[in-house]
Each structure stands twice: as structure tokens, then as C-alpha cells.
């Protein structure tokens, strides 16, 4: 895995009237990372991804593959692919027409590769896109994206509205057939549990700001979740957890930078799932700002 800088954002801001959708974002993304943007609605995830694609103007400094995405969007999109919504393929086109279109305008598109991927699906080349099921449209869009030799792939809620089977298929195909260790993938989704297994890094966002950013490896070392035995709850509380929650009538504690051996003595220890960690970090941040 190489580590060339793909995205460098310094003090990136985006304001809509009185509200900051992005409020001073500082990020460095290296090639090979699969980076998940996690946050509630209005956190600024999509706004940031749109700015990476050059679709909106922002304040501050933002470089994607060494280019200014707003000024050099045309040049940048030769190296960057995106799926920002599953329902955006033009419905009036046939599958063949959309493939020929991409083949005609995108220098990095490999039509043969795309047709090979599509041959493993039930999608007919003569079908109109409006006659395909939502899942098939996603398969088609993903087939197109996977056939483009791009350095950066941006996925903004790519599986919104899909059922579980297609969502699982989408991510497994993405990782197995597309990701080669050098490509960089940015993913924003509400279904965090479905992507956490594929992420190499995560960014937690809230109200236009980054709350936390780290590699999954580091997060798993830094944060531990403890399910203490019934008689060890007071001892668990004394080890100063950063968050606690109830799970099936059992208290679960989250710790930051606490030795695993100490925790193992009093209960079952495992890394937290991203969604739980996010909730805990948000609550910690909220409490911090209140005090």
C-alpha cells in the first residue's frame, strides 16, 4: 500500500445563510484508505463529499489529487468516480446507451470489463433503465464505476433505499472486485454497521465539524467495550468509562486508553462497534461542551 496524499483539506468551510454545513474541516487522506464518514443528518458528510467532487464552492483550502476540485473539476473527474445516489442514471436510456455514453466521454472506462461484470448479472443490455429494479440499477452503476480506472471513489449514501441483500452485495463486490490496495474510497452512509467491516479509517462528524478521526486499527486499540459480571459493576465504574449504556438489561461500559488486561479481569472485553462508539463520542462531546 502506498501512501500518497489524495485529499488535503485545511480549514474547509461551507456556509448556507447563517449555518455552517462545514465548519473548519482539516483532513488528510492517503491513497489506499477506505474512509467512512459517520454522522447524523446535517453533520456535513455529503457537503464535504460534494466539495471533494467540485460540486460546491467552499472556503479554505481543499486539494484533491493535487487539484482544486472547483477549478479543475473536469480534469479531476478523469481520476475520480462517484456514486452519490442510486437513482441518478438517466431513466430514458437503455443499458447499452449509457455504457456507450460513458465509453465515449470517459478516457478511463473499460467497456469490455464492464460488459464482463454485467454478464454475471441478469441485466440485459437492451433494457431501459426505467424498467430495471432499484437493485439492478445499483448493479449497473457499480459495474460502470468498477470499470473506470480511477484513483478515488466517492460513495455518498450509495445504497440508500436498497434492501439488505443488495446492500451486502454492493459492498462485498466493491471490496472483492474493485479495491486493489492503491485506490482510495470515501464512503458516507447511515448504515454504519454494514461498512465498518470494510473501513480502514473513520471520521466522525457532527454539525459541520470533525469530532474524531482515526484508523480502525487504532480505534480498536484505543477503545474497548466491557460487559462486566454482575458483581464487578462498581469496579467497572471506578475505572472511569467514557460512556455506559444498557444492552438487554446489562450495563455495557466504554473505555478509552484503558489497559485490556485490567478490563478482562472483570468481564467480557471487545472492541466497540462503530455505531456505538459514535454515540458515545457524541455524548462525550456534548457533555464536554456543556461543562
Amino acid at each position: 500500500m502506498c501512501s500518497d496524499l489524495v485529499i488535503k483539506a485545511t480549514g474547509v468551510k461551507k456556509r448556507y445563510e447563517d449555518n455552517y454545513a462545514l465548519d473548519g474541516i482539516d483532513i488528510e487522506v492517503n491513497s489506499g484508505q477506505i474512509l467512512g464518514f459517520i454522522g447524523p443528518n446535517g453533520a456535513g458528510k455529503s457537503t464535504f463529499l460534494q466539495s471533494v467532487l467540485g460540486l460546491i464552492n467552499t472556503e479554505g483550502n481543499l486539494e484533491v489529487l493535487g487539484l482544486d476540485p472547483r477549478k479543475d473539476r473536469h480534469k479531476l473527474l478523469k481520476e475520480v468516480c462517484s456514486i452519490t445516489d442510486v437513482a441518478v442514471l438517466p431513466k430514458w436510456m437503455t443499458v447499452d446507451q449509457v455504457l456507450n455514453y460513458v465509453d465515449g466521454v470517459h478516457p478511463g472506462f473499460d467497456l469490455k470489463k464492464c460488459l464482463a461484470i454485467l454478464s454475471r448479472t441478469n441485466i440485459k443490455r437492451s433494457s431501459k433503465i426505467k424498467t430495471l429494479s432499484r437493485g439492478m440499477v445499483v448493479q449497473l452503476h457499480l459495474s460502470i464505476v468498477m470499470s473506470i480506472d480511477a484513483k478515488l471513489l466517492v460513495l455518498d449514501e450509495p445504497t440508500l433505499g436498497l434492501d439488505l441483500v443488495y446492500r451486502k452485495e454492493f459492498y462485498s463486490q466493491l471490496i472483492e472486485d474493485y479495491y486493489d490496495g492503491d485506490k482510495t474510497i470515501l464512503i458516507s452512509t447511515h448504515q454504519v454497521e454494514e461498512i465498518e467491516g470494510v473501513l480502514s479509517n473513520a471520521i466522525f462528524m457532527n454539525q459541520g465539524r470533525i469530532v474524531m478521526q482515526d484508523s480502525i486499527e487504532s480505534i480498536n486499540k484505543k477503545f474497548l467495550e466491557l460487559r462486566p459480571t454482575q458483581d464487578s459493576i462498581e469496579r467497572a465504574k471506578s475505572l472511569r468509562p467514557i460512556h455506559s449504556r444498557m444492552e438487554l438489561g446489562r450495563e455495557v461500559f466504554l473505555y478509552e486508553d484503558t489497559e485490556q488486561d485490567k478490563l478482562s479481569e472483570i468481564g467480557e472485553v471487545r472492541p466497540p462497534i462503530i455505531a456505538d462508539l459514535f454515540m458515545a463520542i457524541m455524548e462525550k462531546t456534548r457533555k464536554g461542551s456543556e461543562t
Partner: peptide, 20 residues
């Protein structure tokens, strides 16, 4: 129409400038 059916998002994901 491209705004209405959101296909504008797809067209703009391709390396074709607005001027082109």
C-alpha cells in the same frame, strides 16, 4: 429535465465540463 430526474448528478460525475 436533468434536474427533475436528478440525472444531472450522473452527467456531472463524468469528466465533461458544463461548457462542453
Amino acid at each position: 429535465d436533468e434536474r427533475k430526474d436528478k440525472s444531472l448528478i450522473f452527467w456531472r460525475s463524468m469528466p465533461v465540463s458544463d461548457l462542453t
